[in-house]
Amino acid sequence: MDRFVAIRLTVNGEPVEARVDARLHLVDFLREQLDLTGSHVGCEHGVCGACTIRVNGEIVRGCLMLAAQCDGAEVWTIEGLTETGEIAALQEAFVARNALQCGFCTPGMLVAAAELLRREPRPSRERIRDWLGGNYCRCTGYHAIVDAVEQAAAALHGAPAE
């Protein structure tokens, strides 16, 4: 069996063709071959969420998916989501609330939070904590992240219903 696999996909809206090592993780492909270094590698075993990206409309862990599985896929990373402005409200809120310190978890946290707000416009604090329960942040204590997601939800959809 050939060790290398040819894939065609779109990444952040741009068409990409590549021959990838069959064992190459998606996040390593994005970082090493496409220089999309905004997605971070924190644990490489699916616990920390630093490599959270969007594949075919679903959020996935870039370390638990192989690049070879992405033939025909549509992949969005923090770089593309920033350029389209799709997550601008969340990014504004994260900056305003200081919902990040070292920033290493932040791209994954934002991609995960964006998915929550896409599904549920006005999540409660408890729901936000629960949803982000797979994204490790060692710096903030999470409180400001919850604040920021709440603030972004309010900016996008108005104040939460009582």
Partner: peptide, 19 residues
Amino acid sequence: VPRPNARRLVAGRGAYVDD
């Protein structure tokens, strides 16, 4: 006041050693 470097980090434009 917000941190000047936060805007870069939320855009995935950090420069960690592995980058």
